[in-house]
């Protein structure tokens, strides 16, 4: 069984890129979300093994979404995908329950390392 993943980012571009990297690594992208709110809803129905989460999104940002997801499922594995300059927010996200983070622009190898650590 492949690990399933939910990709959350408000940009299609980013979702596509992250999705490609993960798919090539053999993960199965089972859903996408373009807002924190959607991420939480989709997590509940899809129950993916992994969530990649952007921080700056409309309708509930990534940090609140991580809180909501880990409240719902303390075992949830969320990987933050943030842009440069969001370091303080990343720390906050980790406190909120995210397991690890990668910084945009992504290097596929760096993303996969983080994914392995989180799924580890």
């Amino acid at each position: 069984m492949n690990n399933t993943v939910l990709v959350c980012d408000d940009a299609v571009f980013m979702r596509t890129m992250i999705g490609d990297i993960l798919t090539q690594a053999g993960l199965e992208v089972v859903g996408e979300a373009d807002s924190g709110l959607q991420a939480v809803e989709k997590y509940k129905t899809l129950r993916p093994d992994l969530v990649t989460m952007d921080i700056i999104m409309p309708e509930m940002g990534g940090i609140d979404a991580v809180k909501a997801i880990t409240d719902f499922d303390p075992q949830a594995r969320v990987l933050m995908c943030s842009a440069m300059g969001q370091q303080a927010l990343v720390a906050e996200a980790i406190q909120a329950g995210a397991k690890d983070f990668v910084v945009k622009p992504f290097q596929p190898s760096r993303v996969l390392e983080a994914v392995q650590r989180v799924l580890g």
Binding site: T16, G19, A25, G26, L27, E28, V30, L112, V115
Partner: peptide, 19 residues
Amino acid sequence: PAIEVPAPTPVARPAITQR
């Protein structure tokens, strides 16, 4: 192991379509 598989497996394909 799932992560190590470098090429997309047939199983992974539906994921692309769905995406």
